[in-house]
């Protein structure tokens, strides 16, 4: 049976981190399962964790009174869910819901925040990795906002 540590070490997100870091991080992790339809995080709730998705699909959604729930993005196996634990006021900015049974590793952000503060090298390494994910999401969001398919091509 693979431990949380084994799985995190094999994940590209953590590639390049020192063994000390990995032991710290693995110590903050645990396996969790969300049944299809379950709310993983709700908008505005306390963000003290992030997830490494191992199996299943997660919906990120926002509610408006005009449209109801709008699916903004889906995350799948291998994706990282959640960065609100890094910044005050540590609140989820979007709702995350399991679209299927979701298996994930939950990492305790509260515990990691403290370790990042005392070990800036590790803090920087983690911040770099989250910044990359954010930059990818911003790029994707730009394309979505452009509504590129809405404009005519090859009419």
């Amino acid at each position: 049976m693979r431990t949380v540590g084994d799985e995190l070490r094999a994940h590209p997100f953590f590639a390049g981190l020192s063994e000390d870091c990995m032991q710290l991080i693995a110590g903050c992790g645990e396996h969790v399962v969300f049944r299809s339809g379950a709310t993983i995080a709700s908008e505005g709730s306390a963000a003290n964790e992030f997830y490494v998705i191992e199996r299943g699909r997660v919906a990120l959604q926002l509610h408006t009174s005009a449209t109801g729930a709008l699916l903004i993005q889906t995350l799948d196996a291998g994706d990282i869910l959640g960065w609100s634990w890094l910044f005050p006021p540590f609140r989820w900015s979007i709702e995350a819901r399991a679209m299927q049974d979701v298996h994930a590793i939950r990492l305790d952000g509260k515990c990691l925040r403290g370790k990042c503060d005392t070990d800036p090298a590790m803090g920087y390494a983690l911040m770099q990795r989250f910044s990359y994910i954010m930059s990818q999401r911003v790029e994707a969001t730009r394309l979505q906002v452009l509504d590129v398919y809405g404009r005519a091509n090859r009419s």
């Binding site: 990120l60 109801g68 729930a69 699916l71 889906t74 994707a140």
Partner: peptide, 9 residues
Amino acid sequence: SAAWRGDVG
């Protein structure tokens, strides 16, 4: 909409 089961992105 939330009814969609496929990818969003």
